[in-house]
Design a protein around this nucleic acid. Sequence first.
DNA 1: ATAACACGGATAATCGATTATTTGTCGAAT
DNA 2: ATTCGACAAATAATCGATTATCCGTGTTAT
Lengths: 232, 232
Amino acid sequence: MTQTAHASNSQGKQMLSEQVYAHLRDAIMRGDYAPGDALKPQDLAKEHGVSLAVVREALVRLVGEGLADRLPNRGFAVPAFSDRRWQEIAEARRTIEPVVLRMSIERGDVDWEARVRAAHHRLARTPAYVPEEGEHYSSAWSEAHRVFHRTLLEGCGNPVLLETFDRMWTASELARRWAAQRTPDRDALGEHRRLEEAALARDADTAAEVLAQHLTLTAAALTGCPHQAKEA
Amino acid sequence: MTQTAHASNSQGKQMLSEQVYAHLRDAIMRGDYAPGDALKPQDLAKEHGVSLAVVREALVRLVGEGLADRLPNRGFAVPAFSDRRWQEIAEARRTIEPVVLRMSIERGDVDWEARVRAAHHRLARTPAYVPEEGEHYSSAWSEAHRVFHRTLLEGCGNPVLLETFDRMWTASELARRWAAQRTPDRDALGEHRRLEEAALARDADTAAEVLAQHLTLTAAALTGCPHQAKEA
DNA sequence: ATAACACGGATAATCGATTATTTGTCGAAT
DNA sequence: ATTCGACAAATAATCGATTATCCGTGTTAT
């Protein structure tokens, strides 16, 4: 390729470590591994057909995002969340997200309004999680759910705050994966609808209140249940 | 070495990548490099007397923490902060920290009180930054400052929220490094004292208010000034 | 019988070298 | 004179192999 390469290869050539990283991240978030499972560089390198170096880089990045644990000289593993940790994550979200939502509602422009509407519409149309034997969850719904919550906050216009949301959401989902293993999702449709309405009505007080309650209820629904089997 | 090595080497044997990571992180935070400077694996490997792999791992970790930029196929570099970015970081802190401070004040126990007192005492005793030619800042004061602010929040008892603080503080300091290059630190002693007093008096309203103002003033002092000289 | 130690297999950490990509330069064609 | 394209140097990404560490197993001395 000697051409000036203004070619629009949107994602044609990626670093190997990037691909492996993405695959591994999705696998972990999807729940393909059990918490505590060892992530052996050699095995992963063979599976992906790459060298140890690229797997290693992917794992190091994962550790940085809390999606893998590292035990020096003992390898990498899928993180196992204690009940305590899960509660801490949920509390952090309850603490921060309502505040950011207020800011978002005060600042969001018309474009933001449109995106909120679209995100809510998409979420409402996506079939919710139905727990089935062996199956973990609906990733389509999970993604729509994430986008809805994130879009609500995006009106704040502050990338740093949104990065904070992203990190907490990731941790929250990872922890939820196992807590919700056997827990049918309660119907949060009503809450999401009220959230959208309050946001579009620029009613920050109500929106913040509904969001805090939404997060509290979700956490409560998952905290008490018999999750994280001690064995395996 | 066949001995069981139960030796109490508190930190005697670390992974090389860990050491290089720490060195590099300190160097960047200390301002040894200029924003935009290339971080060349080969050079760094020679300087530290290690192979490319360990430098690479350190750099990848740094990128994950926002302490280095990565341009695919173009290497790593010291991050350069725009004025906009700096303001976003400052705003994020103003948004989140007062809320966490409230929680901390409501929950902190006597041990926390003692640590707040100690941290403030240490900060008050540490000579503040005095800008001199060629010299960047007093790392002793900077560290005492960080510990004071973090300790104030530690009463919240939530590691996730404290991790959030850590990330924002790191970003804030990195951005401030260059904004403050020529800016004498305004005297924040009084604000810190009032912060300590309000916290220990369990006056959450006042403390949150003082903190918000403290962060606003600090940001204002650094935002308007002629920082980030366009040339070298 | 038990506990400390030594051996050996498995795997993590590191290294040195190879391959691929980018960037700058120089020359040819318009 | 300017632009496009081929070459070359620099350096990023990747690989295959080496070295170091951990952990389980078996042995021996008390």
